[in-house]
């Protein structure tokens, strides 16, 4: 697959590179959801309502998810900035 140099904060949906642009868009959405889940989990851990075992399981799951996300970003030649898309007047997504 042809690797394009993605422009930070912009999704490239050029017809010739649609595959890559689509991967960037999909990974952006997954990263957004992953960060929402992670923040929610941190709040629950800090809230003190989870048992040690639950914290351990949740932490491991999130760690694996983060590692997997890093692998996917590597595969598609993207970095954190590329997934932080520009929402204009609303600022950056992440």
């Amino acid at each position: 697959m042809q690797q394009v140099s993605p422009t930070s904060g912009k999704i490239n949906l050029d017809p010739d590179n649609a595959e890559h642009g689509l991967a960037q868009l999909v990974l952006t959405v997954i990263e957004l959801l992953r960060q929402i889940v992670e923040r929610h989990a941190i709040r629950r851990v800090e809230g003190g309502t989870l048992s040690d075992e639950e914290i351990e399981n949740l932490g491991e799951a999130l760690m694996n998810l983060e590692e997997k996300m890093e692998e996917l970003k590597d595969i598609f030649g993207l970095d954190a900035e590329d997934l932080n898309i520009d929402l204009g007047p609303l600022g950056s997504l992440l």
Binding site: A41, I42, D52, E56, N57, L58, G59, E60, E66
Partner: peptide, 12 residues
């Protein structure tokens, strides 16, 4: 710390 706990502490 155990792995799972490490994740949250590293974030902090």
């Amino acid at each position: 710390l155990p792995k799972g706990r490490q994740f949250f502490e590293k974030k902090k």
